[in-house]
């Protein structure tokens, strides 16, 4: 009985035992992981994910300081930070889709030109085991008569 009490008593509402500096340290480490992702990856998706990691790192630090100062405002700021993250993701993903439509790529290094380049229509979904997708394009045009297409 005493063993279980000792194990569970802190979980069920005891004072804060966690050193604040550990919480801040976790936030810093997460932020540097985010930097790593943004700086070392070229996939825009992963870069957006890394920005999320950095925002979360800020949240961790906010919650930690909120505990340290016994002030609820820190947790309210986390709430705002999440709203900003949601807005950022919505706009970021919209930009990603726009970039993909223009450039056929989500590699950040491919988006170096301001000029709009026409890459033609979007490639159709390609599944493994299927032949190349040129056949689809021809079929979509439907310029040639049905009989000729069947013969070819």
């Amino acid at each position: 009985m005493t063993l279980a009490s000792a194990l569970l008593a802190p979980v069920l509402g005891a004072g804060l035992a966690i050193p604040i500096e550990w919480v801040i340290g976790l936030g810093l480490a997460l932020f540097s992981v985010g930097i790593l992702g943004v700086a070392c990856r070229r996939n825009i998706l992963i870069m957006l994910l890394s920005v999320e990691i950095m925002l979360n790192a800020a949240n961790v630090v906010l919650v930690g300081f909120s505990r340290m100062h016994s002030e609820i405002s820190g947790q309210v700021f986390v709430f705002f930070s999440m709203t900003v993250a949601a807005a950022e993701v919505a706009v970021g993903l919209a930009i990603l889709i726009a970039v993909y439509r223009l450039r056929r790529s989500i590699d950040a290094d491919d988006t170096t030109q301001l000029r709009e380049i026409d890459y033609g229509p979007l490639p159709p979904i390609k599944l493994e085991g299927e032949p190349s997708h040129h056949a689809h394009d021809d079929h979509d045009d439907a310029a040639e008569p049905v009989g000729a297409a069947g013969g070819a």
């Binding site: 700086a39 070392c40 070229r42 290094d109």
Partner: peptide, 19 residues
């Protein structure tokens, strides 16, 4: 497929420096 970044060492250095 993602090409390796031009200078990955710079990114790692930035992260390590910040930490």
């Amino acid at each position: 497929e993602e090409e390796a970044p031009r200078m990955p060492i710079l990114g790692v250095a930035a992260a390590v420096l910040f930490l």
